[in-house]
Simulated scan of single mutants.
Amino acid sequence: MNYKDLMADLKKGRIEPVYLIYGPEHLLATMMKDHIKKTLVEPAYEQFNYTYVDGRDLEVSEIVNYCETLPFMEEKKLVVIAGYSELSGKGASDPQIAQLTDYIQSPNPTTCLVFLSDTVDKKKKLTKQLIKCGQVVVCDKLDPRDLAKWIQKTVKLAGKTMAPRALEIFIESIGYLGKDSKMDLYDVENEVEKLIAFCGVQVNIDESMVERITAKNVENNIFEMLDHLGRGSVDAGLTILNRLLTDGESPPKILQMMVRQLRILYQCKWLRAQGHSAGSIAKEAGLRSFQVNKALNQGKRFDYERLACGYQACREAEVKMKSSR
């Protein structure tokens, strides 16, 4: 199940005895843990009925003991084990792991046990048992629609509103949805907080505010640089390149992004010439719709020969740069 399925269950009061919550979105996983806690544990008895433990050096017997202890003045208690090494496959396996897998097969009905992990090794006995007997919640990166809702909700909680076009520009600028992006929701949250702080007492966030505060990522800068080159504005393109270098971006990374963008332009331009729609191109190239539309517009300024020559030149420079290290 995903986080939305879990939220739906919690609203209906359905709480499983064992959960495995994992995935690259740490903030989302933490939020799911907090929602389970809010549903299950009364604040007045939190010190008795809520246990959060770093699982990196935890022994099996300790986990089972936490789970077997009865709750105080409530029907259930919550035990959260974070970063348990047995799940990720790091380090040697605990010889007593069978004790924990047996518990998961027949858990204490008065305890809700939650494992939080960045990654899991599905070959491990514990992981297999959790998948078989527990409820697995995968916290992957948000899709465009859910990301927009999440940002709007965060903005609303701050007492502000955000125009649809401003939201669209903001999402494109931060780069979270990029195919190779390593950005997570903590990074997005930080960008949203900066935007909110910048707006001050202003309630409505419009396009101009977003454009003034959002720091452009490398991908957007590369796109803008190629856009200038396509228009014949070489000086403007070089200005962006110098800005990237001054800001500390590494030349290999800049070159890598240029190669990627030129490849995208060529691929989108060629697929369009074959009669593909923007939606079909997005699916074929593994891109977002807005990326395809931007690439198609930019591709009009380049013919196939210029794109191929630029791509080849960047690839050769990339090889020389790697071989000279």
Rank of each mutant, 00 (worst) to 15 (best):
residue 127 T to V: 15
residue 286 G to I: 11
residue 220 N to D: 07
residue 94 D to T: 09
residue 14 R to H: 10
residue 61 S to K: 14
residue 37 K to W: 00
residue 290 F to C: 01
residue 308 A to E: 13
residue 240 I to E: 05
residue 266 Y to E: 08
residue 66 Y to W: 02
residue 244 L to N: 09
residue 310 G to H: 09
residue 301 R to V: 01
residue 48 F to I: 04
residue 239 T to D: 06
residue 298 Q to N: 08
residue 143 D to N: 15
residue 267 Q to K: 12
residue 45 Y to R: 06
residue 217 N to C: 08
residue 164 P to D: 10
residue 262 L to A: 02
residue 240 I to K: 06
residue 128 K to M: 05
residue 33 K to I: 04
residue 183 M to K: 15
residue 186 Y to L: 08
residue 160 K to V: 00
residue 201 V to P: 00
residue 83 G to Y: 11
residue 93 S to F: 02
residue 200 G to N: 08
residue 242 N to G: 10
residue 96 Q to H: 14
residue 246 T to G: 05
residue 171 I to H: 01
residue 266 Y to N: 06
residue 107 P to R: 03
residue 118 D to K: 15
residue 50 Y to L: 14
residue 289 S to V: 12
residue 242 N to E: 14
residue 39 T to F: 00
residue 27 L to D: 01
residue 92 A to L: 09
residue 1 M to C: 04
residue 154 T to K: 15
residue 270 W to Y: 12
residue 176 Y to A: 07
residue 76 K to H: 07
residue 134 G to M: 08
residue 104 I to A: 06
residue 293 N to S: 08
residue 291 Q to F: 14
residue 57 D to Y: 11
residue 232 G to Q: 09
residue 139 C to V: 05
residue 11 K to D: 13
residue 54 D to G: 00
residue 266 Y to R: 10
residue 27 L to F: 05
residue 116 L to N: 04
residue 84 Y to M: 04
residue 169 I to W: 04
residue 131 I to E: 15
residue 245 L to D: 03
residue 100 L to A: 08
residue 178 G to M: 04
residue 39 T to M: 02
residue 237 G to E: 10
residue 243 R to Y: 05
residue 100 L to P: 05
residue 171 I to C: 03
residue 237 G to F: 04
residue 303 D to N: 15
residue 209 M to N: 10
residue 296 L to A: 05
residue 115 F to I: 06
residue 5 D to L: 06
residue 314 C to H: 06
residue 311 Y to V: 00
residue 2 N to F: 03
residue 148 A to Y: 03
residue 160 K to H: 02
residue 210 V to C: 06
residue 61 S to N: 09
residue 300 K to D: 01
residue 305 E to S: 15
residue 250 S to L: 07
residue 41 V to A: 09
residue 157 L to Q: 15
residue 6 L to E: 01
residue 138 V to R: 12
residue 256 Q to Y: 14
residue 206 D to N: 11
residue 229 L to Q: 09
residue 103 Y to E: 06
residue 249 E to W: 09
residue 17 P to C: 06
residue 77 K to E: 02
residue 207 E to L: 01
residue 103 Y to A: 08
residue 290 F to R: 12
residue 79 V to R: 07
residue 130 L to C: 08
residue 176 Y to S: 11
residue 41 V to H: 04
residue 153 K to P: 00
residue 182 K to L: 13
residue 53 V to Y: 02
residue 108 N to I: 05
residue 206 D to R: 07
residue 240 I to Y: 05
residue 128 K to N: 07
residue 9 D to I: 03
residue 111 T to N: 04
residue 140 D to R: 15
residue 257 M to F: 12
residue 51 T to H: 07
residue 156 K to T: 11
residue 82 A to M: 04
residue 231 R to M: 11
residue 114 V to A: 07
residue 290 F to V: 07
residue 109 P to H: 02
residue 316 E to D: 12
residue 282 A to G: 01
residue 230 G to A: 06
residue 124 K to F: 10
residue 128 K to L: 05
residue 236 A to V: 03
residue 159 G to N: 10
residue 294 K to L: 13
residue 211 E to V: 11
residue 196 I to V: 11
residue 28 L to Q: 12
residue 229 L to A: 10
residue 276 H to M: 14
residue 203 V to A: 13
residue 177 L to Y: 05
residue 50 Y to G: 00
residue 126 L to D: 04
residue 243 R to M: 04
residue 148 A to E: 11
residue 72 F to Y: 13
residue 320 K to W: 03
residue 108 N to R: 00
residue 312 Q to D: 10
residue 96 Q to M: 02
residue 221 N to P: 03
residue 312 Q to H: 13
residue 67 C to D: 01
residue 141 K to H: 11
